Amino acid sequence: MKFLLEVTMDDAALTRDPAGELGRILRYWGGSLRHCSLEPGAGSPVYDSEYREVGRWTVQGPAD
């Protein structure tokens, strides 16, 4: 299986402070993963600090 986190870096908040925004996203999703099903097909949108969708995390199975 693979855990994939994709974030579009051209969002306004990510352009202003890429390291800060990515750090916030990683902290938030890292802390929330215990509440998520980590089975193939699972996933959820990822939001910046202004609550705009900037990406997605997904779990892919061995055939993906």
Rank of each mutant, 00 (worst) to 15 (best):
Lys2Ala: 08
Lys2Tyr: 04
Lys2Pro: 02
Phe3Cys: 02
Phe3Gln: 05
Phe3Leu: 15
Phe3Asn: 07
Phe3Trp: 10
Leu4Ala: 14
Leu4Pro: 00
Leu4Thr: 12
Leu4Gly: 12
Leu4Val: 13
Leu5Met: 15
Leu5Lys: 08
Glu6Cys: 12
Glu6Leu: 13
Val7Tyr: 05
Val7Phe: 03
Thr8Val: 06
Thr8Pro: 00
Met9His: 03
Met9Cys: 04
Asp10Pro: 01
Asp10Lys: 08
Asp11Tyr: 09
Asp11Pro: 00
Asp11Ser: 14
Ala12Cys: 02
Ala12Asp: 14
Ala12Arg: 11
Ala13Gly: 00
Arg16Phe: 07
Arg16Met: 09
Asp17Glu: 13
Pro18Val: 03
Pro18Met: 08
Pro18Leu: 10
Ala19Cys: 05
Gly20Ile: 03
Glu21Asn: 05
Leu22Arg: 12
Leu22Val: 01
Gly23Thr: 13
Gly23Pro: 02
Gly23Arg: 12
Arg24Ile: 01
Arg24Gly: 08
Arg24Trp: 14
Ile25Gln: 03
Ile25Ala: 01
Leu26Ser: 10
Leu26Asp: 12
Leu26Gly: 06
Arg27Ser: 12
Arg27Leu: 11
Tyr28Pro: 00
Tyr28His: 15
Tyr28Met: 02
Trp29Ala: 07
Trp29Pro: 00
Trp29Lys: 03
Gly30Met: 04
Gly30Phe: 11
Gly30Trp: 11
Gly30Ser: 08
Ser32Asp: 11
Ser32Tyr: 08
Ser32Leu: 07
Leu33Lys: 12
Leu33Gly: 10
Arg34Tyr: 01
Arg34Asp: 05
Cys36Glu: 15
Cys36Ile: 00
Ser37Met: 04
Ser37Glu: 10
Ser37Cys: 04
Leu38Gln: 05
Glu39Met: 11
Glu39Arg: 13
Glu39Leu: 12
Pro40Ile: 00
Pro40Thr: 04
Pro40His: 10
Ala42His: 04
Ala42Lys: 03
Gly43Glu: 07
Ser44Thr: 07
Pro45Ala: 13
Pro45Tyr: 11
Val46Phe: 06
Val46Met: 10
Val46Thr: 06
Tyr47His: 09
Asp48Thr: 07
Asp48His: 09
Ser49Cys: 09
Ser49Pro: 00
Glu50Arg: 15
Tyr51Ile: 03
Tyr51Glu: 14
Arg52Pro: 00
Arg52Gln: 14
Arg52His: 14
Glu53Lys: 15
Val54Lys: 01
Arg56Gln: 13
Arg56Gly: 05
Trp57Glu: 00
Trp57Lys: 02
Thr58Phe: 07
Thr58Lys: 07
Thr58Asp: 10
Gly61Gln: 03
Gly61His: 04
Gly61Tyr: 05
Pro62Lys: 12
Pro62Glu: 15
Pro62Arg: 13
Ala63Thr: 06
Ala63Ser: 10
Ala63Gly: 01
Asp64Met: 09
Asp64Ser: 13
Asp64Asn: 09
Asp64Ile: 00
